[in-house]
């Protein structure tokens, strides 16, 4: 039997998703990318296989995506993360939508039309502001764990404005807030708000809005704040961090990847 695998070698995390011919997820994993993309993808793939295929008897068709997509020699095809995210998202939301993916090192806004075809897209510029790396830096600065941010933001008592669009400037702004005795919870909420503003600046938020990526997966409160800001519901697929890998697996199934 054939299984179809998508491996998304992102800047921070490497994700693998295995689906069967019915497009059901039969295995997945999320791992750190580290400095060796090949090793990271090996680990992600074998961990995902453990759930999907403990006897190791299946045949795999693999499509790679993400920053390290060219570093994996055993794939059947490659596709950019822009196309894979759009494909993965359209599987769950079969309407025209604007997809916002907030990843480790970049964020993207991608347009998907009613037929599932991907239109224009924008990726953020060179600064980490508005990405997972930005949140990581700020968590360090505040001396809290990355995993605590969501809970802290939920507890905020008020909205504070953090306006800079440069990570270093933001860190300085935060120092000022700390000096002024601002509560950490309020600062974290301000930071979430800054991530949202960076996304809104990238492209008009038209049609339905879908959000994916690791930041969304671990910080559902950020989605809630985004909804409030836009005044409309935001759709999040199951396993939002895996949307790109899932899209790649769908491309593997549909046999439309570029040659690897």
């Amino acid at each position: 039997m054939n299984y179809f695998t998508g491996i998304d070698v992102g800047a921070s995390a490497t994700k693998a998703v295995i689906i069967n011919a019915e497009k059901e997820v039969v295995g997945y994993s999320v791992n750190n990318s580290g400095a060796d993309f090949r090793a990271a993808s090996d680990t992600a793939f074998s961990k995902a296989k453990k759930n999907a295929d403990p006897k190791g008897s299946e045949n795999y068709i693999i499509v790679a995506t993400g920053y390290g997509r060219r570093n994996i020699p055993y794939v059947d095809g490659i596709k950019t993360e822009i196309s894979c995210h759009a494909r993965g998202s359209y599987h769950f939301f079969r309407n025209a939508h604007t997809l916002i993916d907030i990843g480790g090192q970049d964020s993207k806004v991608i347009r998907v039309d009613v037929l599932g075809e991907r239109g224009s897209f924008k990726m953020n510029r060179k600064c980490a502001a508005g990405t997972g790396a930005f949140l990581e830096e700020i968590a360090n600065r505040l001396d809290v764990k990355l995993g605590q941010l969501n809970r802290l933001a939920e507890k905020a008592q008020k909205n504070i404005e953090i306006g800079s669009y440069c990570t270093v400037f933001t860190a300085t702004e935060i120092l000022t807030k700390i000096r002024e005795g601002e509560q950490v919870e309020n600062i974290v909420k301000g930071i979430f708000n800054s991530v949202i503003t960076r996304a809104i600046e990238m492209d008009p938020m038209e049609n339905n809005i879908v959000m994916t990526g690791g930041v969304v997966a671990y910080n559902p409160f950020l989605v809630k704040m985004f909804e409030e800001k836009l005044g409309k519901k935001i759709f999040v697929p199951p396993l939002p961090q895996l949307t790109g890998a899932f899209g790649a697996a769908l491309f593997a199934l549909e046999g439309k990847p570029t040659e690897g």
Binding site: Y67, K79, T80, E81, I82, S83, R118, G119, F121, M123
Partner: peptide, 9 residues
């Protein structure tokens, strides 16, 4: 990545 995604488009 931008250029490649553009060509895919």
């Amino acid at each position: 990545t931008n250029i490649e995604a553009f060509v895919e488009q």
